[in-house]
């Protein structure tokens, strides 16, 4: 759906140039929810704005649904933009229009006949569950309701792609959840591709199929969300995951349990950790002491982490770890304590 190649963006200021994006290449598949995560200033905001040319790339090309967005003239670009919806952190609703007319706005721009447009707005109000708020003005809505209006507005022209610019960052966790549920729902129902940027790993965890980690103007890692959660390949990814999944073992535990080998076992999906570990204990002459454990959900898949302290002969421990590997578990040997 989206193909970004060698995208570079340089902001020129009188004193110096700022490199916001450095040769970014990325592919987003049709129908998936793709997340881009990065700290503020990493370049994610610039990246998403390049996709509908709100920012003009300095170099590189972007193809959206077979169309080279970066090569369009002004008129063609306006036409393409009508087929790319966008939602924003600050909602960006017109305070001079009520909810109904706000959703009507993109339909006016695409010159949809009024009667048809009105019907469409009613449909959209139903999709986002705000039928009773049609005549209310934005300043009387809660943050979550405002974002629902934003989503309805973005969907008005039946886009193929929805860009979400930190759409939940101004919302509380509860509201964030409900907005993400709505996004997931429309993704499934309308087969809409969604590209979202966020600094919150929870958002990635809850809705994304794939994720790209952006750091310092570069994409440092791209992959399946589950895979990155279970096996982050870069320190940046790891620190994002640590921000929501506790993986660091408290210092005291390391001090008190000074005799064995610490390993981290990650398991995904239905491969329940328990039986494998008990059979390991039966087969090998090792003892396992559970130091820390948690289970989380990534999108709809259970995802767990277990930190074990194995004690026994070195050779046995090695064999035991090998066994766990063979069972398809992700094992990380933490430093010998």
């Amino acid at each position: 759906m989206i193909e970004i190649s060698n995208l570079t963006k340089i902001y020129k200021t009188p004193s110096h140039d700022v490199l916001a994006l450095d040769k970014v290449s990325l592919k987003v598949n049709k129908g998936e929810i793709f997340g881009i995560i990065g700290l503020s200033g990493a370049g994610k905001s610039t990246l998403i704005r390049c996709i509908n040319m709100l920012e003009k790339p300095t170099e590189g090309s972007i193809i959206v649904d077979g169309q080279v967005i970066t090569a369009l003239d002004k008129n063609e670009l306006r036409g393409s933009r009508q087929k790319i919806g966008m939602i924003f952190q600050q909602f960006n609703l017109l305070s001079s229009r009520n909810v109904f007319d706000n959703i009507m706005f993109p339909l006016e721009i695409s010159k949809v006949p009024v009667n048809e447009a009105k019907k469409r707005v009613s449909e959209l109000l139903e999709i986002v569950g705000l039928t009773d708020k049609a005549l209310v003005y934005p300043d009387q809505l809660s943050g979550g309701q405002k974002q629902r209006v934003g989503i309805a507005r973005a969907l008005a022209n039946r886009p193929k792609l929805l860009l979400s610019d930190e759409a939940t960052s101004a919302l509380d966790p509860q509201t964030t959840k409900s907005i993400l549920r709505l996004l997931k729902d429309i993704n499934a129902r309308l087969n809409l591709t969604i590209l979202l940027i966020t600094h919150d790993m929870n958002v990635i965890k809850q809705v994304c199929d794939r994720v790209a980690v952006i750091d310092n103007s570069r994409i440092v890692e791209v992959g399946d969300v589950l895979k990155i959660f279970s096996n982050p390949g870069t320190p940046t990814s790891r620190s994002f995951i640590n921000s929501i999944v506790k993986q660091e073992i408290p210092e005291e535990l390391l001090q008190n349990n000074g005799r064995g080998q610490l390993i981290r076992v990650s398991f995904i999906g239905d491969s329940a950790g328990e039986p494998i570990i008990s059979s390991m204990i039966k087969v090998f002459d090792v003892k396992a002491n559970i130091i820390y454990g948690n289970i989380d959900r990534v999108k709809d898949t259970p995802f767990g982490n277990l930190v074990l302290e194995l004690t026994g002969a070195d050779a046995d421990i090695k064999e035991a770890i090998k066994f766990l590997h063979e069972q398809g578990l992700e094992i990380e040997v933490l430093h010998n304590v």
Binding site: L54, S80, M86, F88
Partner: peptide
């Protein structure tokens, strides 16, 4: 707010529409 203009641009609005709407 510039965000309002940006939102209109993202919908494909032209200059006249941004001024009047």
């Amino acid at each position: 707010e510039w965000g309002l203009v940006e939102a209109a641009l993202s919908m494909g609005a032209n200059t006249w529409e941004i001024i009047t709407k």
